[in-house]
Design a protein around this nucleic acid. Sequence first.
DNA 1: TACCGG
DNA 2: ACCGGT
Length: 209
Amino acid sequence: MEMKEKIAERASELMLQFGIRTVTMDDISRDLGISKKTIYQYFKDKKELVNTITHLHLNLEKERFQGSANDSEDSVQELILVSQCLRESMKDMKMSLMNELQKFYPESWQMYEDFKQGVMLESITNVIIRGQKEGYFRAEVDPNIVAVMRIEQVQSFIMRNLFPREQYSLYDVQMQLFDHFIHGLFTIEGHQLFNQYTTSKVKQNETLN
DNA sequence: TACCGG
DNA sequence: ACCGGT
C-alpha cells in the first residue's frame, strides 16, 4: 500500500476513535513511526488530510448505497437495505465528529452535505419510485418530498439529543422512525411482502440491526 | 528533533 | 499551554 493511503487510513482510525482535533500531527507520525515531514510531503496541511479522509469515507458509503440497489430482488428489500445504510452511515459518523467538521473543517462538512443531497437523496428517491412501479408503495407519495423528509428525520434524531440516552437507545428511536415511515409508505401488498422478509425473528434482527 | 508563531 | 507547520 502506498504511504499516502497508509497515512490517511491510520489517521482516519485515530480520528474516528479520539476525535479530529485531539489527534495531533505528532500523534499520527509517532503512531506510524514516520516523521512529520513525511506526512507533509503528501498533505499540504491538516485540513487537506481531513478532506482526503472524508472523501475516502464518503466513497465507501457511496458504493454501499449503490450496491444495495443492485443486490435487491424488489423495492421492499431495497428499502430495507438502503435504510440500513442510512442509519449506519449516520451512526458511525457520530455527532461529536460532525460538529467538529462543521466548526473547524467546513470544506469536509460541505462534502458531507453534498453527499446527503446527492447519493443519499437519490438512493431513497429511486427506491420510492421503484416501489411505486412495483405496486408496493402508495402512488400518492411524492418521492422527492418524502425522501428529503426521511433523511432529515433520521439525521435530526441522531444529531440533536432529543431523548436522554438512558431513556431510549439510538436504535430504539431509529426503529420507531422506520416503523412509522413504512406505515405511511407501503400499500397492502407492500406490507405483506415486508412481513415475509421479517417474519423470521432471527432474520429480522440481522436485517434491521 | 528543535524550534517558531498563532 | 499547545499544536500546526518548517
